[in-house]
């Protein structure tokens, strides 16, 4: 029982990171039908921006939580802006080109980000400061760290914020509308290019938040960290139904749980086999995912 609970807690923690990254995949796919292969690397850049801010604040004697808050906000803003610039420079000129061109451009953006960070920070690992120590409490024999609770709640808050934005504001409604029909959205007076850029900003900022939390939680970051995590988050988005925002949230948590339970009950070495077997299974059996109704097209 205590082992089960422990896996549950660990799975929800990592699952909330996946969910935040999966949201970016799903929002961008929903709006321009692009699997943004650079999105995992956006997560990685977020982790590095956060690390840089924390390193700069190390001498400031700011309380740990305040420093982390600053790192989160700066990383979200800077990485969001980076995502927006990549969209404007690399994707927007290709929106009317064949899908393959923009897909290859996304791969190029991914390589550029990975190698750019490697050149700047080196190929080794950077270590996040131990801000939150290991303090926690125990429930029925499972060890729960305060960081796990905090990060899980923060992830939920970010997801709830995004959901409310998309469903309760005019700009969010415009976002959903242009995912359905771009030309019709233009005829409503929606600045489609602007809303697409905003979508990249939001998706990238959420990934950056996940990156900073990941760095703080696991402490080790590396320029390649976005590759595998990005693929897992993509799996989460597909599982939930790509293009579907609540689907990405649920898919992320499910993939995190799947990973934690297969690590715990089977073996850590098998977890990726199992996660990606799920990806294949979903694509074969129910390509629209758990929540998706929209048919996956043009890919």
């Amino acid at each position: 029982m205590s082992a089960f609970l422990q896996f549950l807690v660990n799975g929800l923690t990592v699952g909330s990171f996946y969910a935040l990254v999966a949201l970016g995949y799903t929002m961008i796919y929903g709006i321009i039908r692009l699997i943004n292969f650079a999105h995992g690397d956006i997560f990685m850049v977020g982790a590095f921006v956060g690390w840089t801010v924390l390193a700069a604040l190390a001498a400031s004697h700011l309380p740990a939580l305040a420093a982390l808050g600053v790192a989160l906000v700066v990383a979200m803003a800077a990485t969001g802006a980076l995502g927006l610039v990549i969209e404007r420079v690399a994707y927007q000129p290709l929106l009317k080109a064949p899908r393959l061109s923009i897909l290859i451009t996304a791969l190029g953006a991914s390589l550029a980000l990975e190698n750019g960070v490697m050149l700047k920070y080196g190929a080794g690992f950077e270590t996040y400061p131990h801000l939150l120590a290991g303090a926690g409490f125990s429930v029925l024999g499972a060890q729960v760290k305060y960081a796990q609770v905090g990060f899980f709640l923060l992830s939920l808050a970010l997801m709830a914020g995004l959901y409310l934005f998309v469903h309760r504001t005019p700009v969010g409604t415009a976002m959903r509308a242009l995912a359905l029909d771009q030309d019709a959205a233009r005829l409503m007076g929606v600045n489609v290019e602007g809303v697409i850029m905003l979508t990249f900003f939001l998706g990238s900022a959420l990934a950056a938040a996940a990156g900073v939390m990941y760095g703080t939680y696991y402490t080790q970051i590396n320029f390649m960290m976005g590759f595998l995590l990005g693929l897992r988050a993509f799996t989460a988005a597909v599982l939930g139904g790509i293009g579907n925002i609540p689907g990405a949230m649920v898919g992320g948590l499910l993939i995190g749980l799947l990973e934690a339970f297969s690590s715990g009950y089977i073996s850590g070495q098998w977890k990726d086999v199992i996660v990606f077997a799920v990806l294949i299974l979903v694509l074969v059996v129910k390509p629209t995912g758990l929540f998706g109704e929209r048919v996956v097209e043009r890919m």
Partner: peptide, 17 residues
């Protein structure tokens, strides 16, 4: 070209975006 996945009211709100 109405937005089939949005409600009638949301469609009108978009008309008044």
């Amino acid at each position: 070209r109405i937005f089939s996945g949005l409600t009638v009211e949301e469609n009108l709100n978009l008309g008044g975006y």
